[in-house]
Design a binder for these strands. Structure first.
Lengths: 250, 250
DNA sequence: CGATATTTCGTCAAAATCGTACAAACCCCG
DNA sequence: CGGGGTTTGTACGATTTTGACGAAATATCG
């Protein structure tokens, strides 16, 4: 599929690029569909492309020799998959794959790094984004270490809400459990609690945010620092406006 | 204090630099003592220097508006404090400070970034180190999310052991608790268990590793991935040889 | 429509961890 | 030697999370 017109681009990083850099990058790009579980970066495998998410959600997951894994990075229309190529590193032990189906712009690694070499401002933009991801990683560790399921779940829902259109999040409890590294029925319980507090409404395979302010209260300090850093350095808002009782827009 | 002779340098990143890059960097550098709690990077404050650790240990800690904090990065003679300047980012929300007293080479940010601009190989070295720190961050999140105190404590001791000379680690339970984000007396209990397994011996304010192999078994999959990535990309060993019953060398 | 797979709900006892508190052991300094 | 601060050992109940299971509800597809 062809690249959409520049004005229709959703990806914030692409929006932040200069016209010249954008044109060079997209000369070689194409729009691809991103079905659930589609792999964007495999563990310890060089990847041929990076992918700018236009719609949907990807997760970066750290895993190891045991079967253990947790999500450490959240990527939506504000970011890209394959960030390690910004550091000119060929592979990474982390995996990245699609969690909520969508679409994205696929660019070859050569073209991407070539563009970075020519446009210093673009290179700096991606270094800034790299830094934001570092902060997000650090705060994933903080959340996992110091907050309980209640707050972590709210944090996770907020991060999804920031990165998806509308207020409906197509997520199963199973998936949330996998990402948070907790037991599935623990997620079920906590979702009920959060629903009882009036922040969300759940139906099978679907969670709707109805009071974002409340959700931010629940997440407490576990949410916010990486998001503010993104806005400071990239210059575009990532956090959604705090709509209360948004019973509209699915 | 003056910079030591190149051959006496302990820092692995400095060792990996070319002579020219090293000379440029150290023309402006000086050796400084690093007492416990000495701050190397403050939260959201631009720093004037970066610091290459020669001896001792620093921690990068993520914190937020609540009083919550955990260690997310471990820095010893294999690394440097102030890594975000490699990305040309002026500030970071994370703090970095000394945990085990030692010494390091202090270099001004201007000189450091100037050196990076002139020597592409050096720039790539630090990008590689950046990537290693990312992996470490990710695995801090993994450890916090999926491993219990027992394994996390062993992981932490191994990371200290890698970065300090000898087998003695000058650490109090209180400090370990702070870093791991757990209760102090929980650390006490677990240390007893690990001591009972014959991996360490503890005295007041001091932990001695006596069976590293055992310690690695205890840490299970929580330890190892970031270390292997470092060795792959930097080309120098970070993990200590597995000495059993090392009742020698303090 | 009916069969099948997926997703959700709920419950139990057990384990891990926490919060708090206090006493004992230890070290340093005067 | 003796005081004062630091570090460690230990205890208690409370809270959180787990592991394992089966039943109920809902989607999907032929």
């Amino acid at each position: 599929m062809p690249v959409p017109d520049r004005r229709d681009i959703r990806n914030l990083l692409l929006k932040a690029l200069s016209d010249d850099a954008f044109n060079m990058l997209t000369a070689d790009a194409r729009t691809i569909q991103l079905p659930v579980k589609h792999s964007l970066v495999d563990s310890d495998q060089p990847n041929e492309h990076v992918c700018f998410i236009e719609e949907g959600l990807a997760s970066m997951v750290a895993a190891n020799g045991d079967e253990e894994a947790v999500e450490v990075g959240h990527i939506g229309h504000e970011g890209m998959a394959g960030l390690h190529v910004v550091l000119k590193t060929d592979t990474t032990p982390n995996r990245t794959f699609i969690q909520v189906a969508g679409s994205g712009l696929q660019v070859s690694v050569e073209n991407f790094t070539g563009m970075l070499a020519i446009f210093p401002a673009a290179n700096q933009l991606f270094l800034n984004y790299m830094h934001c991801c570092d902060v997000q990683l650090a705060h994933s560790a903080l959340a996992n270490g110091r907050y309980n399921m209640h707050e972590r779940l709210a944090r996770w829902l907020l991060m999804c809400h920031d990165r998806l259109n509308g207020n409906g999040l197509p997520l199963t409890h199973e998936f949330l459990a996998l990402m948070l590294g907790v037991r599935r029925s623990g997620v079920t319980n906590e979702l009920h609690v959060i629903e009882g507090l009036g922040a969300i409404r759940t139906t099978r395979g679907h969670i709707r945010v109805i009071d974002r302010v409340r959700l931010e209260e629940i997440a407490a300090g576990s949410y916010g620092v990486p998001e503010r850093e993104y806005e400071r350095l990239i210059g575009l808002p990532i956090r959604r406006p705090a709509t209360q009782n948004a019973l509209s827009s699915r």
